[in-house]
């Protein structure tokens, strides 16, 4: 099958590759670019573990062709913070125990990122609605919601954070 060229901006870096048209965005990110922070969960558009931002909007990258991201900006979990300089949302999930196994967390954080960009001070109902496409199978959602509320506070203060013991 003929390969085609795709180019997009991933975490503020231009990336291009020759790919099979059927390549999914999640596979492009993980297998072509080695960005394995984006997880493959259900593969059926349910769980949201593969959530990335496409031009600032959260999408399930297992249900997007890499070619649909042509010319667009993609942000993955690797693009919003590092171990030494955590994004406030990452810091908040850490502080409020918003994860247990961590598998759903990249998706939870990116969906929260989109929400907080649009609504800096969301109430619980709004948070629950915004995260309704992201499933967590271990903690339940109470601590995740606490984390997003706390992240909103940290963002207001302009706080980023360092991973404990990272130095």
């Amino acid at each position: 099958m003929t390969k085609v060229r795709v180019s997009m901006e991933v975490n503020q870096q231009m990336r291009d590759a020759q790919i099979e048209p059927r390549l999914l965005l999640v596979s492009f990110l993980r297998e072509e670019l080695g960005l394995t922070g984006t997880h493959v969960g259900c593969e059926t558009t349910n769980c949201g573990a593969c959530t990335v931002l496409l031009d600032g909007r959260g999408v399930k990258s297992c249900t997007v062709l890499a070619l649909q991201a042509e010319g667009k900006k993609v942000t993955t979990i690797e693009g919003i913070g590092t171990a030494e300089n955590l994004n406030p949302i990452q810091l908040a999930f850490w502080e409020k125990h918003g994860l247990q196994c961590g598998f759903c967390t990249p998706g939870m954080i990116l969906a929260s990122y989109e929400l907080l960009e649009a609504e800096p001070d969301p109430d619980e109902k709004v948070i629950r609605e915004a995260l309704s496409g992201n499933l967590c199978r271990c903690t339940g959602y109470v601590n995740i919601i606490k984390s997003v509320k706390y992240a909103a506070k940290l963002r207001k203060k302009g706080m980023r954070g360092m991973r404990k013991g990272a130095a």
Partner: peptide
């Protein structure tokens, strides 16, 4: 319709 992430696409 569906969820917010699906609605975005």
């Amino acid at each position: 319709i569906a969820d917010p992430l699906v609605r975005n696409m």
